[in-house]
Simulated scan of single mutants.
Amino acid sequence: MYFKDRTDAGRQLAEHLLNYEKVPDGIVIGLPRGGVVLAVEVAKRLDLPLDVVCPRKIGAPMNPEFAIGAITETGEGIFNKEAIDYLAVSDEYIKETVEYEKQQAQRRLILYRPGMPPRDLKDKVVIIVDDGLATGSTMKAAIKSIKAEGAKQIVAAIPVSPTDTYAEIREMVDDTVCLSTPPMFQAVGQFYEQFMSTQDDDVVEIMSEYNQ
């Protein structure tokens, strides 16, 4: 399955979430930056509020694109112990990187939610949306954070994911929607005709317009 762009993927995803339309205490959470483009389409279709959680990847030393974990603005995080042990990543590196990425996540949360009240997910039905999964580290961190905030039910919604990552996510939440789990998976972007980078300004505009 291929998607024209993130907006198209969000609209397709929304059609598979109609059992959550106007669900009491429901809210859609987008994972910045790209996931927010899909999340706003889901929120519009389901007639639900839109908010964000800001997970940040913890990259390996000398190879920051390789995730050894992820953390959110609340400090909730997940770590790949096998990768950390294999790469002999020091406790000092993890501590320093976690603190830096936590600060970056907090900065982004403030930027993306201008004028909005503090996020309240206690006893909510939370639909988490991203533009796709690879290792799933940021989605896992978001799930852990949202659980810690007291969500009543968590739904993970993504257009595409590797089979093994999707299986791991399914174990962590109450419900999942994934439109495609292709056997040959290299990167999320390969399943989009257009996969332009989403900028901070794009997220701010989406959040401001939807929540005005």
Rank of each mutant, 00 (worst) to 15 (best):
S180R: 02
T198P: 05
A157W: 04
H16N: 13
Y100M: 13
L87G: 06
L111S: 09
L179T: 12
E149P: 01
R107G: 07
L31K: 02
G189L: 07
P49I: 01
V125A: 01
P159F: 05
F66S: 08
I68V: 15
I143T: 04
M207K: 03
R6N: 01
G10R: 04
D201I: 06
K44G: 05
V98A: 02
A14Y: 02
V53Y: 03
E41I: 07
I158Q: 01
F191Y: 12
K102V: 08
I58P: 08
S208P: 10
L18N: 02
K81L: 13
Q199L: 14
G59H: 11
T72S: 10
K102Y: 00
D130Q: 07
V53N: 04
A83V: 14
R6H: 04
D51P: 12
Y93S: 04
T97C: 01
D130G: 10
L17K: 01
R113Y: 01
Y210A: 01
V129D: 04
K140L: 11
G115H: 13
G26Y: 04
L48Y: 05
F195D: 06
S180P: 03
P32S: 06
T165L: 14
V52N: 05
Q106E: 15
P182S: 14
A142Q: 00
G30T: 03
Q12M: 09
V188M: 11
I128E: 04
D8R: 06
V203W: 01
K95T: 05
V126Q: 09
K144L: 11
A148D: 12
I143C: 08
A88L: 07
M196F: 14
L121A: 09
K122M: 02
E41P: 07
I128R: 03
D202L: 09
A60H: 10
S137F: 13
Q199H: 15
R107C: 05
V155K: 05
S197C: 05
D25S: 09
K44R: 15
E41Q: 15
D123E: 12
D164M: 14
P114Q: 07
E99M: 00
A151D: 04
I206Y: 00
I158Y: 01
K4T: 14
V204K: 10
R113V: 03
A67S: 14
Q186E: 13
E15K: 12
P114D: 11
M116S: 11
Q12W: 03
E65N: 13
C178E: 07
Y100D: 11
I127L: 13
V173K: 04
A156N: 09
G59D: 11
I206V: 11
R6S: 03
V52M: 10
D120W: 08
P49F: 06
V28P: 05
